[in-house]
Design a protein around this nucleic acid. Structure first.
Lengths: 148, 148
DNA sequence: CAGAATCCATATCGATACTG
DNA sequence: CAGTATCGATATGGATTCTG
């Protein structure tokens, strides 16, 4: 597969990214206060994305979330939800019933985040087989590509 | 800002995500072979996104990448590039010159990933101030929201 | 029910030193 | 130049126990 497919389409995105990167790397690491790292660190952690997807369908109680992902410990569920709440992506509501009940829902900010996040998830699903195939190739053959 | 803005637009995305989640959580964790985790784990790690952005502008030599992000150690740069190469997102080319020279470039698959990734990055940049504000609010006030 | 607290295993990352 | 190898610090996550 040559680099010819949709080359024009991506050339634009490439340049934009290149410029963004130039303007970005100055503060990305030196300041260690980079907004992108702020967000991506969470996207990359083990449960955040799963919880966000679970909440995308509407408010969920703590127990329901716990049941939705059976192998998340309560410790991590609480911690993930707290971070999400702190970042303003999720809202926590307490109902003062006899056994206390709590539910969580996406805030407008959280809903807004789901759009680009969902796009990335879609890409991941579509590309998974290609990635798996690439890994097999890499692991089996030495496949050294030298330039002439 | 109320939840009213673009509510119709996001309702659609919500439902799609909710359905996706339902179909997803069965294999997301139990199988631990979830394609989404496969990708997001990398997006969340410390250097992958930065390297991808650096390569979005075109091929880069190892040394150039190292200089672009002065505080990445060679160990991590190599490791990140190897993983990217293994996943088929980046191609490595060796030029057998006297002091060996190597460069890295995005593959078509890598370029394709940059699109959704860039969208998420854009969102992160746009939303950073809102997130920072939410954190301040959370850290300062107890701000317990109880339902009536 | 919805957590908080504590302890421990592992994964991740950085610094340093060495090499073809 | 472009790595590899080894080591130690720290961050992350899981299991368990306890509570209002």
């Amino acid at each position: 597969m040559g680099p010819g497919d949709a080359e024009g389409t991506i050339a634009n995105a490439r340049e934009e990214l290149a410029r963004k990167f130039d303007a970005w790397r100055e503060v990305a690491l030196d300041a260690s206060r980079c907004p992108v790292r702020d967000v991506l660190d969470r996207v990359g952690d083990k449960w955040t994305t799963l919880i966000l997807m679970a909440l995308a369908g509407g408010p969920q109680r703590f127990g329901a979330l716990s049941r939705a992902a059976p192998d998340i410990s309560k410790r991590m569920l609480t911690q993930t939800l707290r971070t999400l709440e702190r970042d303003g992506l999720v809202a926590r509501r307490v109902y003062p019933t006899k056994p206390p009940s709590v539910d969580y829902r996406l805030t407008p900010l959280g809903v807004a985040m789901m759009e680009p996040l969902a796009a990335l998830i879609r890409w991941a699903e579509q590309s998974h087989s290609a990635i798996v195939a690439a890994r097999r190739r890499f692991d089996e053959g030495p496949a050294e590509e030298s330039a002439a």
